[in-house]
Amino acid sequence: MTAVILTADASLAPSSEARIPGNKGIWVGIFSEMTEFALLFSVYFLAKAHHPEAFREGPPQLSTLAGMFNTIMMISGSYFVAKAVMAIRRNQRDVSARWLYGVAFTIAGYLLTKYFEFQWNVEHGITGRTSIFFTTYYYLTFTHMVHIVWGAMGLLWVTVRTKTGAYSPEDHEGLEAFASYWHATDLAWLIIFPLLYVLR
């Protein structure tokens, strides 16, 4: 599988060592986001080192199903937005918009799952003060959720721009910038999920 991936053709985007997906501004935002999460992950590692028991007992008390479902939502949203970018490069505006609706569906699925998960936590007596593990869990997942909400606003903007014909195969910088941000938010979750839900 890896061999297949490594020999795959390049995308329709121009291949260049100087090319910046989206624009410089969005990458300042993305690196700020990644730095913010790096700090929160550092807190996680330090808290785990100091309180190994809490981090062994915490994950089994969470709903792994909710975490897994949201991982599927994040990966799928990332895939849908990559397909939307590919469609606009082929000048298929309506197809691109349909993929963006798919991203909206994954955001709704994510937020709905988070709502039920937090409710489930409360019913099982889990709050941010239950243990240091859950304090870390709420910090990380709330912060991620805030980034999802920002992304939802960005999605609304690029969907309207796509529908009104603002993007073309030659110029779709805004859509690429949103896609890059959304992939970064997916990346953060790809670390949060194993740290909080899977590893003991």
């Binding site: 060592e17 910046i20 990332s78 896609a179």
Partner: peptide, 8 residues
């Protein structure tokens, strides 16, 4: 997905 293998 980010296409960084062919970018900056």
């Amino acid at each position: 997905f980010m296409e960084l293998n062919t970018a900056n």
